[in-house]
Amino acid sequence: MVENRRFGNLIPHLVLCLGVGIVVFPVYLALIGSTHDAATIANGQMPLWPGGHGLETYRRALTESGMAGAPVGLMLLNSTIMALAIALGKIFISLLSAYALIYFRFPFRQTAFWAIFVTLMLPVEVRIYPTYKVAADLQLLDTYAGLALPLIASATATLLFRQFFLTVPNELVEASRIDGAGPVRFFLDTLLPLSRTTMAALFVIQFLYGWNQYLWPLLVTTRDDMQTVVIGLRKMTSITDQLTEWQIVMATAVLAMLPPVVVVFAMQKLFVRGLVETEK
C-alpha cells in the first residue's frame, strides 16, 4: 500500500519557503532601494515596490567616482580579475602538486605532503605581516599580482586532488606507458579530463573565496582605482549618514552579488557532481 504523504510534506515545504524568504527579503530590499531616490530612503518610508530612479542610480554607480573614490564598474573589474586569478592559480598549482605527490617517487615525498598539510593551520590572517613584507619588497602593492599571488597556494585543493588521484586505477597508468605516453601526456590526456568535475567544484569555491576577500586587498591596495568592490562597499557605509547615498550603496551591493551568482548558476551541475561523485 502506497502511503499518501501529501500533507506530510507540507510542513517541510513551509519551513523551506520561510527560510528562502528570510534569505531573499534583504536582497529584495536592496534591489528595491536602489530604484528610489535618496530622500525616499532617508525619511524611512521606502515602499516595497520599485521606484523610477533605477537606471539613473545604476548608471551613476557604474560610471561615477562617488563615495568609494572609484566607479563601481572599475571595482567590479578588479574583483573579477582577482577572483579569477586566485581560482585558476589555486587549481593549477594544486593539480601539479598532487600529481607530483602521487605519481613521482622522490626523497622526502611524505615530508612534502605533511608540510603542505600543516599549512592548513596557517591562514592568511596568521601570516599577514610577513606576506605583506614580501609583497612590499617585491613591489607588488597596488598591482593585480599583489592581490592574487599571495593567495593562490591552497593546501585544501591539493589534498582534494590527491585523494582523487588515489582513486584512479593503476591500469590507466600502465596503459599509458604501453602507448608510449610520458608523464606530461598522461597528465594532459588522462588525468585532466577525469578531473573536470573536481576542478569545476574547486573553481566555484575558490572564486567565491577570492571575491569575498577583505583583509588582504585592504592592506595591499592604497589607490582607489585598485580597490575591490568589497572594500568599496565598506568604504561607502563608513562615512556619516548625512553624506551616504544609500541608493548607490544598495545598487553597489546588488552589483557585487551578480558575478558570484552567475558563476554558481553557470557551473551548478558540474559543481554538484564534483562534490558528490565517488566514481569517475
Rank of each mutant, 00 (worst) to 15 (best):
Pro50Glu: 02
Gly73Cys: 11
Thr40Tyr: 01
Gly89His: 06
Thr80Gly: 09
Gly51Glu: 04
Pro50Asn: 08
Ala42Pro: 04
Gly89Pro: 02
Ile41Trp: 04
Gly21Gln: 05
Leu62Tyr: 10
Leu74His: 05
Ala68Glu: 14
Ile41Gln: 04
Leu62Trp: 08
Ile41Phe: 03
His53Cys: 05
Ala61Val: 14
Ala70Lys: 08
Gly66Cys: 05
Ser79Leu: 11
Gly89Val: 08
Glu56Gln: 15
Thr80Lys: 07
Phe25Asn: 12
Met67Ala: 14
Ser79Tyr: 06
Leu48Glu: 03
Ser79Lys: 09
Gln45Ile: 13
Leu31Thr: 08
Ile41Ala: 05
Gly51Asp: 03
Met82Trp: 06
Leu62His: 12
Ser94Leu: 03
Phe25Met: 14
Leu95Glu: 03
Ala38Tyr: 07
Thr40Lys: 01
Thr35Phe: 00
Ala38Cys: 04
Ala42Arg: 14
Ala83Met: 10
Ile41Met: 02
Ala39Tyr: 07
Val24Ala: 15
His53Lys: 07
Thr63Glu: 05
Gly89Phe: 08
Val24Pro: 04
Leu31His: 02
Ala85His: 02
Gly66Pro: 02
Thr80Pro: 02
Thr40Glu: 07
Pro47Met: 04
Gly73Met: 07
Arg60Ser: 13
Ser79Pro: 00
Ile91Trp: 01
Leu84Cys: 15
Leu95Asp: 01
Asn78Lys: 08
Pro71Ser: 11
Ser79Val: 11
Val72Pro: 03
Gly66Phe: 06
Ser34Leu: 01
Met67Glu: 11
Ile86Thr: 07
Met82Asp: 06
His53Glu: 13
Gly52Lys: 10
Trp49Gln: 10
Ala42Lys: 14
Pro50Val: 09
Leu76Ile: 14
Val72Gln: 09
Thr80Met: 15
Gly66Tyr: 06
Asn43Met: 11
Gly52Cys: 04
Ala30Lys: 02
Tyr28Glu: 00
Ser34Asn: 01
Pro50Ala: 09
Val24Gly: 09
Gly52Ala: 08
Gly69Pro: 01
Glu64Tyr: 12
Gly69Gln: 12
Leu31Val: 07
Thr35Glu: 00
Ala30Val: 05
Met67Gly: 08
Ser94Lys: 05
Ile93Asn: 00
Val24Tyr: 13
Ser34Glu: 00
Ser94Arg: 10
Thr40Ala: 08
Ser79His: 13
Ile93Gln: 04
Val27Asn: 06
Leu62Cys: 10
Ile41Val: 08
Gly73Ser: 10
Gly21Asp: 04
Tyr28Asn: 01
Asn43Ile: 12
Pro26Arg: 12
Ala38Pro: 03
Leu76His: 14
Thr57Pro: 00
Ala38Val: 12
Asn43Ser: 14
Ala39Gly: 05
Thr35Trp: 00
Ile41Ser: 03
Ser79Asp: 13
Arg60Thr: 14
Leu76Pro: 06
Phe25Gly: 10
Ser94Ala: 15
Leu77Arg: 12
Phe92Lys: 02
Ala68Tyr: 09
Ala30Trp: 00
Ala70Phe: 10
Leu76Gln: 11
Lys90Phe: 07
Thr63Leu: 11
Leu48His: 02
Gly44Met: 06
Leu88Gln: 09
Lys90Asp: 14
His53Tyr: 12
Lys90Gly: 15
Val23Cys: 13
Gly44Ser: 10
Ala42Phe: 06
